[in-house]
Design a protein around this nucleic acid. Structure first.
Lengths: 338, 338
DNA sequence: GATTGGCACTCCCGACATTCGAGTGCCAGC
DNA sequence: GCTGGCACTCGAATGTCGGGAGTGCCAATC
C-alpha cells in the first residue's frame, strides 16, 4: 500500500522536523526511520505529498517542511497519544495536591504545564457562569457601609462594598442575610440572580435590600472574573530562535491581551474536548506561526474553564496533547474533591 | 572649562546612543548638538572620557558607547528630570481615577507605566506588613466549617476556611466575632497578631477560638501577598532587537520569578526614594544589560510597596524616572483617599 | 505497476577576497 | 587649548566561487 507508506513518510517528516528544526531530506529520512524502501521511493512519495499540500520546500533542492495542512493531518490521523510516564504522573499529582486554594491550583497548573511542555501555558480561572452559590454573607463594616461576600461552589469568593442609605440593626441584618441566602444558595448563579431580583418588588423594596441585591446580581454577572487568566513559561519563547518579530512579538502582545487569549483557548462551551488549532486556522493573522493545544476542565462532567499551551506550529503535538489532557484531568479531580 | 564640556559630551553621547542605538562618533555629535567646537576637540574629550571609563568603543574605529559607569554619572549628575507633559499628566489622572478597587489600581498602574515608558513595568501589591486591621468577620458556612474574612486598611481582603471540631450556636459566633474584633481592629497587623495570640490562653482555650485565631495569625503573617506582583508590557521586550539570548531570555525568566523581581525593585524599606540600578550594579549577572528604575509608593509618608520599570541599560532615564515618579505619586494619592 | 539506482541539475551555505566609509589618533599650526 | 589635516584601522557590505545536500527524472528491474 503506497498510500499507507505516504502517511508514514509524512509522520516521519513531522517528527524529524520537530526534533531537528531543519528541512528533512529523503536520505536522512530512510536512515533515521526504519522504512524499508530506498530514498528514491521516498522522493516520489514526497512529491505526491507536496502536490497534495501537506509539505513544502523552502527552496528548490532543500528538504521538506510540513505545512499547516500537514500538521493537521498528523494530529488528526497519525499522532498516537504519547502517554505520560509514571514519573510525570507522579510529579503532576504531587505538585497539584500541594495546592492550598483555588488561586494556588491555577498558579501551580500554569507552572506545571509550561514545564512539562516547555511552552507558554495558559490557564483560565474557573468561570462563574456554571458554578452555584454556596453562601452569601452580609457584614456591617460601619454605619451605612456593608460588605457583601459571595462564596461560590468553585471556591471563588467575590466581595463588594455597598453604601446604603439607612442604618441597620443587627436583627435587620440577620433577616436580610437569611433572606438572600434562602433565595440564592444552591442555585446556579444565573438562576440565583433572577431569584434575587424577584425579592425586591416582593419585599416592598426597602432601599437597603435593593442595594444589596443589586450588588450581588452585579457581582454574579460581572464577567471580569470570567476573563481572569494565568500565564506562565513566557521564558520558553526564547527558544523560538529566529523570526523574532514575526512570531514572538505578536505572541507577547497576545499574552497581555487576555481577551485574545480567551479566544485562542476557545469558547468554554466547547466543553472538555481537546482542541488543537494549528497556525493560520485561527482568526489572528499575526499568530499564523503559532499553534494552540487546549481543553476544558472543571469538576464533574461539565467544563468550567479551559487551559492549554501556546507554541510554534513546529511543536511536539503528541507530547503537548498528553500533558494538557493529563493536567486538565488532575485539576478537575482536585476541584471535584473540594 | 574643558571639564564642563567633557560632561556635556558625555551627556550628548548618552542621549544620542539612547536615541539611535548606534555607537556615536565625533562628527555626528557636533552636528546634532550645538557644541561650539570642532570634531577634533570632541575626540580629545572622548579619549579622556574613555580613559576614565565612562565610555568605550565596541571596536577600534567605531563610535563610542556609554559604559554602566557612564550611565551612572549621567543619571546622578547630568539628567535634568524631564517633567511630564500636561497631556501625560491628564492621562495618568483619568486612567487611575477610573479604578474601582485595589487590584484595579495595580493593574491600571502597570499598564500605564509600561505605556508611558515603553518598557516592562512592575508593580508590587501593597504589603500587609504596615497596614492595619479594619474588620474581621467569622461566618458559619456549614456545621464545623467557618469562613474567616480579614479586611485591611489597604482594601485588601483575605479569606480562609477553617474546619473546627465543634458546632457553634449563633450566639457563640457573635461572641467570637466581637472577641477577635475587639482585639484586632485598628492595630497594625503585627500588633494585631500578638493581641490575638494572647486571647487563646486567656480564654481557657476553646478549640474553636484557637483554630480561628491561628488561621487569622497565619493569614496576617502569610507573606504570599507580600510577594504579589503585577507585570505588564512584556511585549516591549520585542524592541530589544539583538542579543536575544543574552538579554531577553534571562529577563523573561526573572519576570516569572517574583522573588527575583522583588529584589530588583529593591527592599521596600528603601522608602520613597527613586532608585536607579544600572546594569551590573545588581546581584544578578544575567541581568547585566538591564537597568531598573523604581520607587516606593503608598498612602501617607510611609512607603507600602514599590513600583518601577525594567529595561535595557540603554534606556531613556530622564523619561523613565519622571514617569515612575509621577505614577507613584498619583497612586499614593489615590490610596490616601481610599 | 511499484521500486530502485543513476545522473544531471539546482541552489543554499560558508569561505575568502575586495571595497568602502565612518571613525580614530596624532601632530603641527594657530 | 583648539583646530584642520592626514594616515590608519577595522567592520559592514558586496562579490565570487566551490562543496554538498537534495531534488527530479528516467531507464532498468522485480
Amino acid at each position: 500500500m503506497q498510500e499507507e507508506r505516504r502517511l508514514a513518510v509524512l509522520r516521519a517528516i513531522v517528527e524529524d522536523y520537530v526534533a531537528t528544526e531543519e528541512p528533512v531530506g529523503s536520505k536522512a529520512l530512510v536512515e533515521r526511520h526504519g522504512l524499508g524502501v530506498s530514498p528514491a521511493t521516498v522522493r516520489n512519495d514526497m512529491a505526491a505529498l507536496e502536490d497534495e499540500g501537506y509539505i513544502t520546500q523552502p527552496h528548490t533542492s532543500a528538504g521538506r517542511v510540513p505545512t499547516d495542512k500537514g500538521y493537521r493531518l498528523f494530529v488528526d490521523k497519525l499522532a498516537s497519544v504519547k502517554p505520560m510516564s509514571a514519573a510525570e504522573k507522579r510529579a503532576i499529582a504531587t505538585i497539584l495536591d500541594g495546592a492550598v486554594d483555588l488561586d494556588d491550583v491555577v498558579n501551580r497548573s500554569v507552572r506545571l504545564l509550561s514545564q512539562l511542555t516547555r511552552q507558554v501555558a495558559v490557564v483560565q480561572y474557573p468561570t462563574l457562569s456554571r458554578s452555584t452559590v454556596r453562601h452569601v454573607e452580609v457584614i456591617a463594616l460601619a454605619p451605612y457601609r456593608l460588605l457583601v461576600v459571595l462564596i461560590l461552589s468553585t471556591g471563588r469568593v467575590e466581595q463588594r462594598l455597598v453604601e446604603v442609605g439607612g442604618e441597620l440593626s443587627d436583627d435587620d441584618l440577620t433577616d436580610l442575610r437569611s433572606l438572600v441566602n434562602r433565595a440564592a444558595v444552591g442555585e446556579v448563579i444565573a438562576d440565583a440572580a433572577t431569584a434575587l431580583r424577584a425579592l425586591v418588588p416582593a419585599e416592598g423594596g426597602t432601599p437597603v435590600t435593593a442595594a444589596v441585591v443589586e450588588t450581588l446580581v452585579e457581582a454574579m454577572s460581572d464577567h471580569r472574573s470570567d476573563e481572569r487568566i494565568a500565564v506562565g513559561g513566557a521564558a520558553n519563547l526564547a527558544r523560538y530562535g529566529d523570526n523574532f518579530d514575526s512570531a514572538v512579538r505578536p505572541l507577547l502582545e497576545a499574552l497581555e491581551e487576555h481577551v485574545v487569549l480567551l479566544k485562542l483557548l476557545g469558547e468554554a462551551t466547547t466543553g472538555e474536548l481537546l482542541t488543537v488549532r494549528i497556525g493560520h486556522e485561527g482568526p489572528y493573522q499575526e499568530l499564523a506561526s503559532t499553534s494552540v493545544v487546549a481543553t476544558g476542565y472543571g469538576p464533574g462532567d461539565e467544563a468550567f474553564a479551559r487551559l492549554g499551551i501556546v507554541g510554534p506550529t513546529r511543536m511536539d503535538y503528541p507530547g503537548s496533547m498528553a500533558a494538557v489532557r493529563a493536567v486538565a484531568r488532575y485539576v478537575s479531580r482536585i476541584l471535584d474533591e473540594a
